[in-house]
Amino acid sequence: MRYTLYQVRKEHRREYGFMSLEERQAILGTKDIDLSVYGVTYQSDVDTEHPHAALDYLFHVFNLDHPDDFCSYSMSVGDVVHLGDTWWYCDSSGWTPIHTCRT
């Protein structure tokens, strides 16, 4: 399954980075995730069709076993993963599916 990791760009981390989805929605007043403040930091394939297994695996990889060509900070709260045809928000406690992303 194809995935893309989106992380908040450095110039937007102070206002958008490392927030739970609930915090983010309360501060910004919207459920939309504005991808214009994010950058694509990695794309590849993962060998499972089960979203939660794939997300748990990706969290492990991007925290403990970074790919050699990965040049960003470890995966954290506020990161977004596009996995297959679904979007997921790395929340303060696990993964939350998100249905709307603005680019």
Rank of each mutant, 00 (worst) to 15 (best):
M1R: 02
L5Y: 14
K10P: 13
K10E: 15
H12E: 04
H12L: 01
H12D: 04
R13Q: 09
R13K: 11
R14P: 01
R14Y: 08
R14M: 04
R14Q: 11
E15K: 10
E15F: 02
Y16N: 11
G17E: 00
G17W: 00
M19C: 01
M19Y: 04
M19G: 00
S20I: 00
S20T: 03
L21G: 06
E22G: 09
E23A: 09
R24V: 02
Q25A: 13
Q25Y: 07
A26Q: 11
A26K: 12
A26M: 08
G29I: 04
K31D: 02
K31Y: 02
D32W: 03
D32Y: 01
D32S: 04
D32A: 02
I33K: 01
I33S: 03
L35P: 00
L35W: 00
V37I: 03
Y38I: 03
Y38F: 05
G39M: 04
G39D: 03
G39A: 05
V40C: 07
V40I: 15
Y42R: 02
S44G: 14
D45H: 07
V46C: 09
V46I: 15
V46T: 12
V46L: 07
D47I: 11
D47E: 14
D47L: 13
D47W: 10
D47Y: 11
T48E: 07
T48D: 08
H50S: 13
P51I: 15
H52A: 13
A53N: 09
A53E: 10
A54I: 10
A54C: 13
A54K: 11
A54L: 11
A54N: 14
L55Y: 03
D56K: 12
D56V: 07
Y57M: 15
Y57K: 15
L58F: 08
H60Q: 10
V61D: 04
V61L: 13
V61K: 11
F62E: 01
F62W: 05
N63E: 03
L64A: 09
L64V: 08
D65K: 09
D65R: 10
H66P: 06
H66N: 07
P67R: 10
D69Y: 14
C71H: 15
C71Y: 15
Y73P: 05
M75H: 00
M75F: 02
S76M: 10
S76T: 12
S76D: 12
S76R: 11
S76Y: 04
G78C: 12
V80C: 00
H82F: 06
L83D: 08
L83T: 08
L83A: 06
G84P: 09
G84Y: 14
G84F: 14
G84N: 13
D85V: 02
T86F: 12
W87L: 11
W88D: 05
W88F: 07
Y89A: 01
Y89N: 03
C90G: 09
C90Y: 15
C90R: 11
D91G: 10
S92K: 12
S92F: 07
S93Y: 15
S93L: 13
W95Q: 08
W95S: 08
W95N: 05
T96I: 12
P97R: 15
I98R: 03
H99I: 12
H99D: 13
H99P: 06
T100D: 01
T100W: 02
C101N: 07
R102D: 08
R102E: 10
T103I: 10
